[in-house]
């Protein structure tokens, strides 16, 4: 359950960014979470309801955009989805394809309210 730590960090970053911009409340938090990030969206949602309480982000909507992990084979340039770290090209069998995306654990944007 490191999702609790991650979401506590999300609250910290979101409220800090809101404050810096002169806003007083965070009304929505948008995250991008890769399928190989190690964090589970359901656990993040569960943690969010707890960690946002008593902060300027209390009650804010949480939107999580999942990012499916994908690799590109260096040998034949095929791009393919990758459910684990077995980066073997399904077309030509070459191992060790480069991961293009899927490790994201990002805060994409927030919506704020001024007063």
């Amino acid at each position: 359950m490191h999702e609790v730590s991650i979401m506590a960090e999300a609250v910290r970053m979101a409220t800090e960014a809101a404050r810096k911009s002169g806003a007083v409340r965070v009304t929505c938090l948008k995250l991008r979470v890769g399928t190989l990030s190690g964090a589970v969206p359901d656990a993040m949602r569960f943690a969010w309801d707890v960690v946002c309480q008593g902060t300027e982000a209390e009650g804010a909507r949480l939107e999580i955009e999942p990012v499916t992990a994908a690799c590109r084979c260096e040998a034949c340039r095929t791009e393919f989805d990758c459910a684990d770290f077995i980066n073997e090209c399904p077309r030509c069998g070459t191992p060790g394809a480069r991961l293009l995306r899927g490790r994201e654990l990002d805060i994409a944007s927030i919506e704020t309210q001024d007063h």
């Binding site: 991650i6 960090e9 999300a10 970053m13 979101a14 960014a17 809101a18 911009s21 806003a23 007083v24 409340r25 009304t27 929505c28 995250l31 909507r61 994201e104 654990l105 990002d106 805060i107 994409a108 944007s109 927030i110 919506e111 704020t112 309210q113 001024d114 007063h115």
Partner: peptide, 29 residues
Amino acid sequence: HAHPHEHGHDHSHEHGASRELSLNLSLME
């Protein structure tokens, strides 16, 4: 999303302007 301001703005506002801030930061930063 559902929001009380979907109607006209011909009255005094209870709360302020809503804005979207693009951050693009890693939570592990």
